[in-house]
Amino acid sequence: MNDPATTAQARDGCDDIATARHVVAASLLAWMLDACDFFIVLFTLDDVARSFHVSLEAVLLAPTLTLLTRPIGAFVCGRAADRYGRKPVMITTIMVYSLIEVLSAFAPTLATFLCLRALFGIALGGEWGVGTSLIMESVPASWRGMASGILQAGYPAGYLLASLAFLLLPVMGWRGLFVLGGSALFSALYIWLRVPESPQWLAHQRAGGAGAA
């Protein structure tokens, strides 16, 4: 007969592997869709400039502002993730950048558009750092090298996805592509349903509570 303790241990091990796979898949998906939204801007710069009746040089401020504000997001969201947990902060950053992407589609002026892209950069910087922490703290140690490589692959995958979405430009226009980019919200739903909080963060919280007691 099988030892019940051994059977339970094996079952728990399978559950841990399944959970690790969800963590990697969710983080990859979030980063890929984040990158896709960023590259959609680059692909549609000419169309945005014509829509606002400004020069291409003026619209080029959009990706510049996004990149400049990324460190702000990395710092703020990193601090928030240490205090409130990796999972809720990651979900929040995805919801924020998805909302900003949709709002960008309805920007009435270039100034509004540029402000939204600056805010997008904050969410962009936050999502990357928190997602990396969630992966590294959740997967087995033997997976970490592979997991970090998979996460890095999300950026070129996002570029490819944006290239494919750009084929819809004649049908949807640049504003329609931005609305489509808001579908990244579904990755937040996936994380909420299938990805647990970082076990290292939970252990740290328990240790802090015990120390305070």
Rank of each mutant, 00 (worst) to 15 (best):
V48A: 10
R79V: 13
H204G: 15
E127H: 02
F39L: 08
W201F: 12
G13C: 11
D82T: 08
I100T: 02
P156H: 12
L193T: 12
T69A: 14
R144K: 12
A123F: 00
I17G: 06
G126Y: 00
S163G: 09
P88Y: 05
A184K: 02
I191R: 05
A62F: 01
L61T: 10
D16M: 10
I94M: 02
P140Q: 13
Q200P: 03
A58S: 15
V171R: 11
A212Y: 11
I94A: 00
I40C: 03
K87W: 07
A5Y: 11
V24S: 06
T19A: 05
S148C: 08
S142K: 12
P71G: 15
A107L: 09
R70C: 10
D12L: 14
S183A: 10
L42T: 13
W128R: 01
S142V: 10
R117A: 10
F178A: 03
V23P: 00
W31N: 13
E101I: 05
R50P: 04
P199T: 06
P199Q: 08
G149W: 08
V76K: 06
L61F: 13
L114Q: 09
P88M: 09
R144N: 08
G121W: 02
T6W: 10
R21F: 02
I17W: 11
Y155M: 15
A30V: 13
V23T: 03
L61Y: 13
V48Y: 04
M95F: 09
A80L: 07
W192C: 06
L65K: 04
L185K: 04
V179I: 05
R194A: 07
V96T: 06
I91G: 00
